[in-house]
Each structure stands twice: as structure tokens, then as C-alpha cells.
Amino acid sequence: MNLFRLAGDMSHLFSIVLILLKIYTSKSCAGLSMKTQELYTLVFVTRYLDLFYSYVSLYNTVMKLIFLASSFGILWYMRYHKQVKQTYDREQDTFRHYILVVPCAVLALIVNNELSVTEVLWTFSIYLEAVAILPQLVLLQRTKNVDNLTGQYIFFLGAYRALYILNWIYRYWTEPKYRQYLVWAAGLVQTGLYADFFYYYLKSWQAGEKLRLP
């Protein structure tokens, strides 16, 4: 494993820690999209089905379990915690799941490496992950009230993807058989979705202000 990959994974992990920290310390999930969290949970569940039939490394297994457990944990807080669930922006978080889930499922059935249940589900998770941040970005645009932790959460999620792209470039040059066009295309789309957010995030940061969206 190279440094870009490790840094990317740590950035991903850190973004999740931030979100749990925010919820736990402030007992609030204001500004967080439950739709995005549900989509990420679906991403992890469909992708990490391989926990049952393949083993790569202890590191991978542990990380997969952490991602699964933490995404269910976040959802549990947002849905069932007495104080936290009251802070959820239900009226603003109106993005419909099927707008993303259905096209990703159709695309996974058409464009995949192999037409098998596990492979299509894995491909579906790759496509869905690329766009799962959209409800969160829409919510951010609507509420315009971005607290520091939410801003940092999205920043680290974007950084995770950008670091994975560096990891892919590195592996492309160092591992002769490393080709994964489908994943690369989805990863580029995913990173691209953050471009706009990054721009405003860095601008606010430079100005030493809280993140403000136009």
C-alpha cells in the first residue's frame, strides 16, 4: 500500500470521526443530510459484501467494518437519538434517493466487469459513491449555514477522493496489471463534484472566515 492510499483512507476515516464528533458533542445533526448518510450506508453494504467471501488483509477487513459500523451509527443518531433527531433539517433535506439509486443501478447492470450479482452490486456501489454527496451539497446550498465541522467533513471527504486519484496514478505506473477504468471514471466524477465546494471552502479559509456559500 502506498502513502497516497493510506492518506486517502485516513482522510475518509477522519471525515467520519468528525461527523460523529459533531453529533456527539453538540447533540445536533443540523446541516447534515440524512439522504447522503443513507446512500453512503448503501454504498458500504453493497461494496463490502465481499467480507463474506474474500480476504485481502487485516487492515482492509478492519476498515470495512469501521466504515459499516460508523455509517449505521450516524444513521442511528440521526433517526433515533432523542435530542439529535430533533435537529435534523427534514424540510430542507428533500433530495430523492431514487434519482441517484435507479440510474446507478441501471448503469451498473450495463457497464460492469462481469455480469454476476456480487460484481454488479460492487459496481453499483462505485457509481453510487460518486454521487452520494449530492444531497449533502444541495442541503448546504439551501441552508447556507455551514458550521465548521460540517465544512471540514465535506473537505476531508473530497480530500479522500483526490488522494485516491494520486494513488491510482501511482499504482498505474508501478503495477503493470493495474487498470480500472470504471473506478477511475467514477472517482473523477466524484472528485469533480467537490470542485465547487473546495473553491468556496478555500476562499473562506483564506479570508479567515466561516464557510459561506453564495
Partner: peptide, 10 residues
Amino acid sequence: EDFIDLKDEL
């Protein structure tokens, strides 16, 4: 096929 071993990423 060589795509299987690329499942080593998260």
C-alpha cells in the same frame, strides 16, 4: 481477468 485483485482498495 485482472480486475479481481483490484478489489484490494476500500
